[in-house]
Write a protein that binds this DNA or RNA. Structure first.
Lengths: 209, 209
DNA sequence: GTGTGTGAAAAACTTCACAGCT
DNA sequence: AGCTGTGAAGTTTTTCACACAC
């Protein structure tokens, strides 16, 4: 009955990474990028921890799940660690995403430059209001909702951002999943009912406080 | 050395509520409101759990931290439970908040009705761009940034929403905290460095995926 | 000295399982 | 029958503490 927590010899673990750890990876990445911009060559678990409100041990343990990136006595090389984390998160290549709902919030999101910085690219937007289609907003073409399923399928899109009214969120989400989407970032103030293999992240703007 | 995990006789616990529990409370609230709108008088831990992807035991245990709201054989009365959760979250009274940054995202947030539904009221907005001040947007007056500290202090505002560019976020946050703000909802893609007693919640729109 | 990587201990959180109420 | 509230067991996540490397 001895089963190992288990890491392959070369350091890349086969499985069993706590999801709490994964959720912190993007925080590390962001902080590292800032440190690098401040022309730090290296950093340490203590420094990273302090900046993010975590203990040094936690930072080390988190990173150790994926290999040995640190240099004893030195710390971590920012450049190298950024590269590694990007590999782990898949932020290496650019992930195409679609945005559904071009109301106030949708337009704001199209203008939000943070997505690009993290490796996402909004390739198309959709809306049911005929007034809004056909135009480009912030360089992103806006298509009628009817074309959504088809385009998502044809381009193999995996991620979607939902900025539609609460009443339409579930219906749109169902369509997206049926078309192959595996991750949904939902801004509508409802809990989506989707199969568990779909990563649904709710960002209820009101709830957070 | 017998110390009790500890709940006062009347059910209101003095302390030690896991924060994971608190973070689920608002989910319960939202789901209950939806159930009530679907004209359910009562619900059960099993039903609530299924709707939110939790086990029935967890729902019961979470709620039990705050008292005994359920009726054996019946379940929970939606109306009553909503009321209780509102009390716990302080969503009973209306919390005044200010919004800083009236760009695309800021305007979208002003138009977002979800805040009101959860008991928040945006009472004023601020921006450094003279073009944007003096006007009302969505019924909220927009003032110059210079007046922010003063107004926050004078009205005893405790919560703020930050929708400013990343480069300005830290500076604005510092001012807010100095003026008495104890909770910041930050949309800029940076980690704010604030004293730990300030609840800073980062909503990095990009990171979530 | 500084700082990593990691087993072992501690804490936090979740699930189980059942007594008791309606 | 159905369902809550809760101690106890189980699981996950965090912290401690120390061997080892620069």
């Amino acid at each position: 009955m001895s089963d190992s927590p288990d890491k392959s010899p070369d350091g890349s673990s086969t499985e069993a990474v706590p999801k709490a750890v994964v959720s912190r990876l993007s925080l590390y990445l962001r902080e590292l990028q800032r440190l690098q911009q401040d022309s730090h060559q290296t950093t340490s678990s203590t420094q990273l921890g302090r900046l993010l409100g975590l203990t040094d041990a936690q930072v080390r343990k988190d990173l150790a799940y994926f290999g040995q990136f640190g240099y004893p006595g030195i710390g971590y090389r920012c450049e190298e660690l950024i590269q590694k984390i990007r590999e782990i998160l898949g932020t290496n290549r650019e992930w195409p995403v679609v945005l559904v709902g071009v109301g106030n919030l949708g337009r704001a999101l199209l203008g939000y430059r943070g997505f690009g910085r993290q490796g996402f690219k909004v390739v198309a937007a959709f809306d049911s209001d005929p007034e809004k289609i056909q135009r480009e907003i912030e360089g992103v073409p806006v298509h009628p909702l009817e074309q959504m399923a088809d385009m998502v399928r044809r381009h193999g899109i995996r991620l979607a951002i939902l900025a539609v009214p609460a009443s339409e969120a579930q219906g749109v989400a169902d369509q997206l999943v049926a078309s192959g989407v595996v991750g949904v970032l939902n801004f509508a103030p409802v809990t989506l009912n989707l199969p568990p293999e779909v990563a649904k992240i709710g960002v209820d703007l009101a709830m957070e406080l």
